[in-house]
């Protein structure tokens, strides 16, 4: 699913960039795809080198981001196709995948992907119990019980149904 420029050599007609994940694997990406990431674009503008090491993005996540960038950099695809690709891209992905994805899009500054993933995460959060979200999203509750009770009291309507459920 990941598209790459198979020609490989840097002297190929199409300029390519090598991106290395924190796992050490390298991905060959066309420059037109890489510059959709604001961060990568900046790096490429500053450096001549064509190898970028991303120390906090793993293979799996990086492969997904690159698939996204390559699709969106493909001039041959219509906007409609790109849109349906976006839909498919996050559909069915679990939260554990999404959280690394959103972290990566934040690091790489891929605005439209960040938008898509955030929307998906919001969809997952909808109509869930606080405890469920905390557990599934790995959110550590650092409130004291007193502070939490106070917050629940102040905006009671936000949780009224949940409290009723819990009773």
């Amino acid at each position: 699913m990941v598209t790459t420029d198979e020609k490989g050599p840097l002297t190929a007609k199409k300029k390519s960039v090598i991106i290395r994940s924190c796992d050490g694997d390298e991905f060959l990406v066309s420059e037109s795809a890489a510059v959709l990431s604001t961060s990568l674009k900046k790096i490429l503008e500053e450096k001549e080198d064509r190898l970028i090491h991303l120390s906090d993005i793993d293979n799996k996540t990086l492969a997904m981001v690159i698939a996204y960038l390559s699709t969106h950099a493909d001039d041959g695809l219509s906007d409609d196709l790109k849109r349906s690709f976006d839909q498919e891209f996050v559909s069915g992905k679990e939260f554990d995948v999404l959280k690394y994805l959103v972290l990566a899009t934040d690091t790489l500054q891929v605005t439209c992907l960040c938008y898509t993933v955030a929307k998906k995460m919001a969809d997952i959060m909808k109509n869930k119990l606080v405890e469920w979200v905390r557990r599934e999203f790995d959110i550590q509750n650092d409130y004291t019980p007193e502070a939490e009770a106070e917050i629940r009291r102040l905006d009671a309507w936000a949780w009224d149904d949940r409290q009723l459920e819990d009773d």
Partner: peptide, 28 residues
């Protein structure tokens, strides 16, 4: 949102130019 992060996240430059291998999306 994350410009400030870019500094501390080591986006290091190239260490080698050759020896690329085919892309492998299965994490080692």
């Amino acid at each position: 949102a994350c410009r400030r992060k870019m500094g501390r996240r080591r986006l290091s430059g190239p260490e080698r130019e050759t020896g690329r291998k085919p892309m492998d999306i299965i994490p080692k």
